[in-house]
Write a protein that binds this DNA or RNA. Structure first.
Length: 489
RNA sequence: GGCCCUAUCGUCUAGAGGCCCAGGACACCACCCUCUCAAGGUGGAGACACGGGUUCGAAUCCCGUUAGGGCUACCA
């Protein structure tokens, strides 16, 4: 039997990390089993389908590398893949249930229902529908309909017994039927409710593994009742734990970045996010942390998915991101970095005008000491601009001594004579200088770094020099010498 | 309120009765390396929610309490 799984988000505009992880687990499972990954948009509650909202989700999925075999944009045998385009299917299935008397029309008004709930609550019972319209006869129905009232369709649910949900992650979970009521499957506007649409689609699309967030565990008994009423085969269920915000509450916008798109904008790489998300609620069983996707696919197992909710930790994601920034091929990082450089106005927006060789050198010298692409761009500014200021702390420590400008002048002189201007020659020049001047290397290095970059920290000085090139180095040393004369002497 | 799920360092987790006075990772602290900052290396601090059982033996099994989360809509 071919494994068929689906990810069924509501197109709300962005893919948040909880959804991304659910999608990832589905994807990993199906890639491991050579199955099919179906993307379905659950857009029944939207007045009209917002194409931008759908785009937000699909671009994020694609960016993460979670490609789908069937769904919007790619089609497939079981389409359409937007619920808004499947309304007739739901109506037909609902009609089948009506015909077989497994479902019935209900004419109760919202006010009546509210009163019912109120009463049940007061008596300490589950606020359930009391089945008032369950046995209406033809005459009663006609009378209601004559008044122009649009009915909903409810499923007749058993009053006794229980439903066992057999869950691949949680084991067997039992629910008493008497806690369930005759829930609505079709709203009065002719649109299906979530549970109904979900079951109809999962069956018609032949989904055999339903891997979704834990919040749906409590819906599952209702869905099983629906599967039974419709005569469908039951899929396997796996309810993955939720991802919570640092305060253990449900993730929301007020917790900062929660959408995949925001992480992208903050300079995280898809590899890092996927790797991090895989580790959230799943573990390979050994002590591996950073793993190539191919390993994750190979090792993933629903059995090993934890049962408890996890809090996402931006610090660990950041660490992993730095690991990837350091280990991925340089070309890849350059390509990822370019948009961030452009955003800061460090390089031209027209690709043809970019000095790729220079950008490559910059990325190479800076990338080991940053955690995100945003940091990479920010830490690279002085390679592209001459108009930086000198750090105040640095000025105090390295420019204020009596011989500071003299030292810089010596450095400038030494560099001017250095040829070729490569890492070995440049370092040798400075080491020799420190020897002849009889000062520690650091006495030369720190003021020079400040002169060249305006900063007291950063890549190795000689790397900076070589990347910057001789001309720039001499210019900037000159500038610093003059600055000291004008400002400190 | 009712029903359901969950409970190991601050966080993510390993652990499926003796291998655990609990291992790893991030973060934190110290030291080493070092031209700074990172990275890297070494070391440190840091957890089995609580209470009862079961067992020769429990982080692991059972029950209860507590806490967190979910569902309880003509939302998905």
């Amino acid at each position: 039997m071919t494994v068929r799984v689906r990810f069924a988000p509501s197109p709300t505009g962005s893919l948040h990390i909880g959804g991304a992880r659910t999608a990832l687990f589905n994807w990993l499972f199906t890639r491991q089993n050579n199955g099919a990954f179906v993307l379905r948009l659950e857009d029944t509650d939207l007045e009209r389908h917002l194409i931008e909202a759908e785009k937000g989700i699909t671009t994020s999925l694609r960016w993460l590398g979670l490609d789908w075999d069937e769904g919007p944009e790619v089609g497939g045998f079981f389409g359409p893949y937007r619920q808004s385009e499947r309304i007739n299917l739901y109506r037909n299935e609902a009609q089948r249930l009506l015909n077989s008397e497994m479902a019935y029309l209900c004419y109760c008004t919202p006010e009546e229902l509210a009163a019912m709930r109120q009463e049940a609550r007061q008596r300490g019972l589950a606020p359930r529908y009391n089945g008032k319209c369950r046995h209406l006869d033809q005459a009663a129905r006609q009378k209601k309909e004559a008044g122009g009232f649009l009915p909903v369709i409810r499923l007749k649910t058993p009053r006794e017994g229980s439903i066992i949900v057999s869950d691949l992650i949680r084991g067997e979970v039992s629910f008493e039927n008497n806690n369930l009521d005759d829930f609505i499957i079709m709203k009065s506007n002719g649109i299906p409710t979530y549970n109904f649409a979900c079951v109809v689609d999962d069956s018609l699309m032949q989904i055999n593994y339903v891997i979704r967030a834990e919040e749906h565990l409590s819906n599952t008994p209702k869905q099983i009742l629906l599967y039974q009423a419709l005569g469908y085969n039951l899929p396997f269920f796996a309810h993955v734990p939720m991802i919570l915000a640092p305060d253990r509450s449900k993730l929301s916008k007020r917790h900062g970045a929660t959408a995949v798109e925001e992480f992208r904008l903050q300079g995280f790489l898809p590899e890092a996010i996927v790797n991090y998300l895989a580790l959230l609620g799943w573990s390979p069983g050994d002590e591996r942390e950073k793993m190539p996707l191919s390993d994750i696919i190979k090792l993933f197992s629903l059995n090993a998915v934890s049962k408890s909710a996890a809090i996402y930790d931006i610090k660990k994601l950041t660490w992993l991101n730095a690991q990837y920034l350091n280990s991925l091929p340089l070309e890849r990082i350059i390509a990822e970095a370019i948009p961030f450089f452009q955003k800061l106005g460090l390089i031209p927006s027209q690709t043809e005008q970019i000095d790729h060789a220079y950008v490559a050198k910059v990325v190479e010298t800076v990338r080991t000491r940053i955690h995100t692409l945003v940091e990479l761009a920010e830490a690279s500014t002085y390679f592209f601009r001459d108009d930086f200021n000198y750090e105040e702390k640095g000025v105090r420590k390295f420019f204020s001594s009596l011989n500071a400008s003299e030292i810089l002048a010596h450095g400038r002189e030494a560099l001017a004579k250095t040829e070729p201007f490569d890492i070995l020659a440049v370092e040798a020049a400075y080491r020799n200088l420190s020897h002849t001047l009889e000062v520690a290397g650091s006495k030369l290095i720190h003021p020079t770094r400040l002169a060249l970059t305006g900063k007291t920290f950063g890549p190795g000085l000689f790397d900076i020099m070589v990347t910057l090139g001789k001309t720039k180095c001499l210019e900037r040393l000159e500038r610093a010498i003059n600055w000291i004369k004008n400002n400190l002497c």
